[in-house]
Amino acid sequence: MGYTFTLRTIYPYLGTLWQAAGLTLALSLLAIVISIVLGAGIAILRRSHSRLLRFIGAAYVEVMRNTPLLVILYIVYFAGPSIGIRLSSFNAALIGLSLNSAGYMAEILRAGLIAVAPGQFEAAHAQGLTALQTFRYVVFPQVFRTIYAPLGNQVIAVILASSLASAIAVDEVASWMETVGSTSFRFFETFVVAAIVYLVLCQAVNLGRLGIGRMLFRQGAVAR
Rank of each mutant, 00 (worst) to 15 (best):
M64A: 01
T6A: 14
A79P: 02
V170L: 07
L164H: 08
Y198C: 04
C202S: 06
A131Q: 07
S163V: 12
I168D: 07
A123W: 12
M64H: 03
I196P: 03
Q219N: 11
T134G: 00
F185Q: 04
G80Y: 14
A194Q: 03
L45E: 01
V170E: 03
G220D: 09
G84V: 06
Y198P: 14
G152I: 12
S48G: 14
A59R: 09
L94T: 02
F90V: 02
L207M: 09
Y3S: 06
L73T: 10
L94V: 02
G128Y: 13
F121A: 14
M215K: 11
P141L: 04
V193I: 06
V205D: 02
I156P: 03
T4H: 11
S35W: 02
T9A: 13
A31Y: 00
L199I: 15
L129A: 00
E107A: 04
V155L: 11
L210W: 10
P12C: 02
I32V: 09
L97A: 06
I72F: 06
R214F: 12
G22E: 04
C202G: 13
R224W: 10
A131V: 06
G119Q: 05
F5M: 09
R110V: 06
I212F: 10
G41S: 08
G96D: 02
V143R: 07
A20Q: 05
A124F: 01
M215C: 10
G213Q: 11
I34P: 01
Y148F: 08
A195R: 08
L30T: 06
Y77V: 03
S175H: 04
P81K: 14
E107Q: 06
L216I: 08
Y3M: 12
G181R: 03
V37S: 01
S35H: 02
A194N: 05
E178S: 14
R136M: 15
V173M: 06
A58G: 01
A169D: 13
I72D: 01
F5R: 09
L14C: 01
A157M: 13
V180C: 08
A58I: 07
A111C: 13
A165K: 01
I108T: 11
V138G: 10
L109A: 14
I34M: 08
S184C: 00
Y11H: 15
L129Y: 00
Y104H: 06
V61M: 01
S88M: 06
D171A: 14
G84A: 15
A221V: 11
P81D: 12
I196F: 07
Y198T: 01
A117G: 11
Y148K: 04
G96C: 14
T183E: 10
Q154P: 13
V192K: 12
I10S: 03
G57Q: 00
G112N: 13
L52R: 11
G211K: 10
T134I: 03
L69C: 15
I42C: 13
G220Q: 03
I114V: 15
P81V: 05
N206A: 15
